Amino acid sequence: MAAGQVGQAGFRDGRRDFDFLNGVWTVHHRRLRRRLAGDTDWETFEGTCAALPILGDVGNLDDNLLHLPDGSYRAITIRVFDPASQLWSIWWLDARRIAMDAPVHGRFDGGIGTFFGEDVLAGQPIRVRFTWSDITRQSARWAQAFSADGGASWETNWEMEFRRAR
């Protein structure tokens, strides 16, 4: 069975789910200035993303340059697929504080990737959700949401629109 195909028992190997991201992208960012604070003030900025496969195609890595209004910085995303659990694990490493965020875990279903994790914001535990959607060869959409109530309600606080540069 080829990767990404559905087998006789409904088994779907998702190790190629992030192949769409390989390459170079321009990225339009939109994020809330303050998270889980009732804020409705969004800031927008531009960036780039260059992604490549790693670990024999069971992972990928992307290098990001983000041009925030108060200065630019770099970050990387590391994604690794576990064939046994059929789950992706995703980590974000931000050069401004040289720390790896807690991972999110999930998979793609029906063309939408949904990933959940646990983290801390301002000393309080939160749930984190990443979603990948609207994926084509030339574009994709990513969104991040936080929940302070165990996932009963969500606040989307960061959105990225990807456009393929090459």
Results as ranks from 00 to 15, higher is better:
residue 145 A to H: 09
residue 140 A to F: 01
residue 161 E to V: 10
residue 130 F to W: 15
residue 76 I to S: 04
residue 54 I to R: 08
residue 78 I to G: 04
residue 40 T to S: 15
residue 13 D to R: 04
residue 127 R to N: 13
residue 161 E to H: 13
residue 94 D to H: 07
residue 137 R to D: 15
residue 160 M to E: 13
residue 56 G to M: 07
residue 9 A to I: 00
residue 41 D to T: 15
residue 161 E to K: 06
residue 37 A to C: 10
residue 121 L to M: 08
residue 123 G to K: 08
residue 10 G to S: 04
residue 93 L to R: 09
residue 73 Y to I: 07
residue 121 L to Y: 09
residue 48 T to Y: 02
residue 96 R to P: 02
residue 19 D to S: 12
residue 13 D to C: 13
residue 27 V to G: 08
residue 106 G to L: 07
residue 94 D to V: 07
residue 20 F to L: 02
residue 79 R to K: 09
residue 65 L to W: 03
residue 18 F to M: 12
residue 146 F to C: 12
residue 112 I to C: 13
residue 82 D to F: 03
residue 99 A to H: 14
residue 82 D to M: 04
residue 13 D to E: 06
residue 126 I to S: 06
residue 30 R to I: 10
residue 162 F to G: 06
residue 92 W to I: 08
residue 43 E to H: 08
residue 97 R to Y: 14
residue 131 T to Y: 06
residue 82 D to T: 07
residue 117 G to W: 10
residue 65 L to E: 10
residue 138 Q to D: 15
residue 128 V to C: 08
residue 14 G to L: 11
residue 68 L to W: 01
residue 116 F to G: 09
residue 150 G to H: 11
residue 116 F to M: 14
residue 75 A to E: 09
residue 117 G to Q: 07
residue 150 G to V: 13
residue 3 A to R: 12
residue 122 A to H: 14
residue 20 F to E: 06
residue 48 T to A: 05
residue 69 P to L: 02
residue 77 T to E: 04
residue 164 R to F: 04
residue 91 W to F: 11
residue 56 G to A: 11
residue 49 C to G: 04
residue 25 W to E: 03
residue 124 Q to M: 06
residue 36 L to N: 10
residue 148 A to V: 02
residue 77 T to V: 11
residue 96 R to S: 07
residue 65 L to F: 00
residue 11 F to Y: 10
residue 152 A to I: 04
residue 159 E to G: 03
residue 69 P to R: 00
residue 125 P to Y: 10
residue 29 H to E: 10
residue 99 A to W: 07
residue 69 P to I: 01
residue 69 P to E: 02
residue 152 A to E: 15
residue 97 R to V: 11
